[in-house]
Every structure is written in structure tokens, then in C-alpha cells.
């Protein structure tokens, strides 16, 4: 095709062409799958559909403040995230410290601890839904064997116990992840600081507080950051376990966003909620990074 050659006659243009060609697919995918949807979701979050037609403005964001469902779901999300994160971190840290020592059979423990984490959240949801069933479930069945009255222990069906149940399932599934990251962090600490502490005559508690914890800080930061982001957008397990119920007792932001978008078909409002969730996650992450990194320099 001699005609087409004319376009690329300059040699420097030809040199540019090849790298550009290689970059183009990745760029196209990025544009199509990330950038375009992001811009599109910003525009629809600024649109409200009314009987008169589409109006532009911040109406969707203003509506958030008078929406009881949204505010309650936001509260639930934070309760869920804080409670689950605290339990997972404390349990994960204890397990990591325990299995970092030279106890017997630690290989078996380490391997078996990782099982919950490897299951898909949906499977975990289904398994726990069956176990927590008040009438036929394994948990109440076991409690009955010990002569405990399970009449009022309806777990996911009880407005008081439902939140506790979904948090417990999350702790069951994700403590292993915290454990794994912290264990890796512990094993990366060289023996010298411990030897020095031993020579200086520090107690076990002092060693933990002044040697282990500061050196573990990067791992702690990573694991808290990842878990917080995951917890704030939790969806699958709760959707399977309770679908946000009973009533509204375990509805989180993600569930409410899903419902608004795909049940009520109000994409603009759902997008607005998503951006609020994104902003909150960013703020919290920034606080973590600042707080945990600043202390490291002391």
C-alpha cells in the first residue's frame, strides 16, 4: 500500500508508532473499563430523573441527608467495620505471635487456619446461613445437646443478634488473612533487635511493646488498610446471610447501593452514594497512613 506510507514518512514518527501501537490496547482497555465508567458515573450522580425530565444539580447528594435508610445503613457499615476490624486484628495478632513461636504442630495450625480465607464469601455465607438456622442449624443443635434453651437464639432472624452474627462470620473468614500478613511481618524481623533487648534485660512485655510492635508497623498498616476498605464495602456474605434483615438490622451501604441501582433503577442516587462511600474510605485510609507512618519516625 504505497499510499498509506505517505502519512508516516518522517523517521521519528515511525519510531513513535511502534511503542504507541503496543500501548494502545492497554490504554483502550483502561479508557473503556475505568476512565469512561468513572466519568459517566460522575455525570449520572449529578442527574435526577423526574416526571418532567432530567434535572442537573446536587439533588442526589442533598437527598442523602434526609434519607433515613441511607443514614442507618451508614451507621451499620461503621459498626460492622469497627467491630469486625477490632476482633480480626486482636485475634490475628495473637495467633500470629502464638504460631511464630516454636510450638509443636504449628505447620498444621498455620495451614488449617487459612482455609476460611480461601473460600468464596458466597460459600461462607451459605454455609453459615445453614449453621445459624434457628430450627435446623448446627449451632443451635449443638447448644441443645448441652441443654441450653435455644428458643430465643434465632441468630440472623433476631434484630438483636443479626448484626453480631454477620460480624462473627466476617471475623471467622478474615482473621486468617490478618494472621497471615502479620506472621509474614513477624518472620521478617531479624533476631538482632531481640538479642539486644535480651542483653539490656527488658521484660517480655517491654520487648513486645518496644521491639516487635514498632517493627511490625508496616505490616499492621497494610493489613488494617486492606481490611478497612474491604469491610466498608462488604456485600456478599451479608447479602446471603440476611439480605440486610431482619427489617433493616444488617443493611450496609453496599447493599443499599445495590438495591437502589438494580432494584429501584435509580442509578444517579446509587452513584452519589458510591462516591460518598469512596470519599469516606479515602479519608479513613489517609488517616491510617498518616497516623501509622508518623509514629514510625519517632
Amino acid at each position: 500500500m504505497p499510499k498509506s506510507r505517505r502519512f508516516f514518512s518522517a523517521p521519528n514518527k515511525r519510531e513513535l508508532l511502534l511503542p504507541a501501537l503496543f500501548l494502545a490496547p492497554a490504554l483502550a482497555v483502561l479508557l473503556a473499563l475505568s476512565i469512561y465508567p468513572l466519568i459517566y458515573s460522575i455525570t449520572i450522580s449529578l442527574q435526577q430523573e423526574t416526571a418532567a425530565g432530567v434535572t442537573w444539580g446536587l439533588g442526589n447528594f442533598a437527598r442523602l441527608f434526609s434519607d433515613n435508610f441511607f443514614l442507618t445503613a451508614l451507621g451499620h457499615t461503621f459498626i460492622y467495620a469497627i467491630a469486625a476490624l477490632t476482633c480480626e486484628f486482636l485475634l490475628g495478632l495473637s495467633l500470629a505471635l502464638l504460631l511464630n513461636s516454636q510450638i509443636r504442630g504449628r505447620g498444621v495450625f498455620r495451614a488449617s487456619l487459612l482455609i476460611p480465607m480461601m473460600l468464596p464469601p458466597v460459600v461462607v455465607g451459605v454455609v453459615w446461613r445453614l449453621m445459624l438456622n434457628p430450627n435446623f442449624g448446627a449451632i443451635n443443635g449443638t447448644l441443645k445437646q448441652f441443654g441450653i434453651n435455644t428458643e430465643s437464639l434465632t441468630w440472623t432472624a433476631s434484630p438483636k443478634l443479626a448484626m453480631l452474627s454477620v460480624i462473627a462470620v466476617d471475623v471467622w473468614q478474615w482473621t486468617p488473612f490478618v494472621f497471615l500478613v502479620l506472621l509474614a511481618g513477624l518472620q521478617a524481623i531479624p533476631p538482632e533487635p531481640y538479642e539486644a533487648a535480651l542483653i539490656d534485660g527488658s521484660s517480655r512485655w517491654q520487648t513486645f511493646w518496644h521491639v516487635t510492635l514498632p517493627l511490625l508497623k508496616p505490616s499492621i498498616l497494610i493489613v488494617l488498610l486492606l481490611r478497612t476498605m474491604d469491610l466498608l464495602r462488604v456485600f456478599d456474605q451479608i447479602f446471603i446471610l440476611t439480605e440486610g434483615g431482619p427489617g433493616f438490622a444488617t443493611e450496609t451501604i453496599s447493599l443499599y447501593i445495590y438495591r437502589t441501582a438494580f432494584r429501584f433503577f435509580d442509578f444517579g442516587y446509587a452513584a452519589a452514594m458510591s462516591f460518598v462511600l469512596l470519599a469516606l474510605t479515602n479519608v479513613i485510609s489517609a488517616v491510617y497512613i498518616k497516623f501509622l507512618q508518623a509514629k514510625e519516625t519517632i
Partner: peptide
């Protein structure tokens, strides 16, 4: 046309009444 949204809201309060809330 807003049945999905109405059913959702109505259902939440029915469920809350039945769970004793």
C-alpha cells in the same frame, strides 16, 4: 412503576414489626 422501591420500604417495616422492633 415504583413498586420495587415501595415493596422494599414496606417490607422493612413489616419485618421490623414481626421481629418485635
Amino acid at each position: 412503576p415504583y413498586w420495587n422501591e415501595i415493596e422494599n420500604a414496606f417490607g422493612i417495616f413489616l419485618s421490623k414489626a414481626n421481629s418485635g422492633d
